[in-house]
Computed example of a mutant assay.
Amino acid sequence: MAIMPWKTLSSTHGYILTWLVGYSALLGAVMGILVDYCHIRRRVIDVPALYREQDSRYYYWRG
């Protein structure tokens, strides 16, 4: 389906069951983690620190 996306979009059934269900399963999990981290636990994600190497607060070096 990745090579020929028009095959997925050719029917409503293929579009809903293939694309939307797969996309919502991925996006639902990501949004659930972000909502828990940002709103429920009141944490702030330091985005520049995600891309720094060794001096970041997210750096883990113990294996």
Rank of each mutant, 00 (worst) to 15 (best):
R41Y: 02
S11Y: 11
L34A: 11
A2K: 14
V44Q: 09
D55N: 14
Y60Q: 13
Y60M: 12
D36N: 05
V30R: 08
V30W: 07
S56R: 10
H13I: 12
G14Y: 03
D55E: 13
L26M: 09
S11W: 10
L26K: 04
D55M: 06
L17Q: 03
D36R: 10
A49I: 01
K7L: 10
I45T: 02
D55Y: 13
T8D: 06
G28H: 06
A49P: 00
I33S: 01
S11C: 11
G14K: 10
W6G: 04
V30P: 00
I45W: 03
D46H: 11
Y58P: 01
Q54C: 05
L9Y: 14
W19H: 04
L17P: 00
Q54L: 10
L20R: 05
S10Y: 14
M1R: 04
I16K: 08
A29W: 10
G28W: 06
H13F: 15
D46L: 04
S11H: 14
Y60F: 15
E53A: 14
P5Y: 06
L50N: 01
A29N: 11
G63Y: 06
A25V: 13
R41A: 02
C38H: 03
I16H: 08
R42Y: 05
D55P: 01
V35D: 01
Y58A: 00
C38T: 06
W61Q: 08
W19F: 13
T12S: 15
P5D: 04
R57P: 10
I16P: 00
V21E: 01
D55T: 09
S24F: 12
T12C: 13
S11L: 10
T8P: 00
L9A: 13
V44T: 14
G32M: 09
I16M: 12
R42Q: 12
V35P: 00
L27K: 09
C38Y: 04
R62L: 07
T8F: 08
R43I: 00
Y37Q: 04
L27P: 00
G32Q: 02
L50H: 02
V30D: 02
S24G: 02
P5M: 09
L50V: 02
W6N: 12
I33E: 05
Y60S: 10
Y60K: 15
Q54P: 00
V21A: 06
R42N: 10
Y15L: 13
Y59F: 15
P48S: 03
P5Q: 06
S24H: 09
S11V: 09
Y15F: 15
W6H: 15
Y59C: 13
P48F: 06
V30L: 09
L34W: 05
S10I: 07
G22C: 05
G32L: 13
S10C: 12
C38V: 06
G22R: 02
L20H: 05
T12Q: 13
M1A: 11
G22M: 06
S56W: 10
L34S: 04
A49D: 14
G28D: 01
C38A: 05
V44R: 12
A49M: 12
T8Y: 09
R43Q: 14
A2G: 15
Y15R: 10
G22T: 03
V21W: 11
I45N: 00
M4E: 09
I3C: 03
T8E: 09
L20S: 03
M1Q: 03
S10K: 15
A29H: 10
S56D: 03
V35M: 04
M4H: 08
L26Q: 04
G63Q: 07
Y15P: 01
D55C: 08
R41W: 01
I33W: 08
Y37V: 08
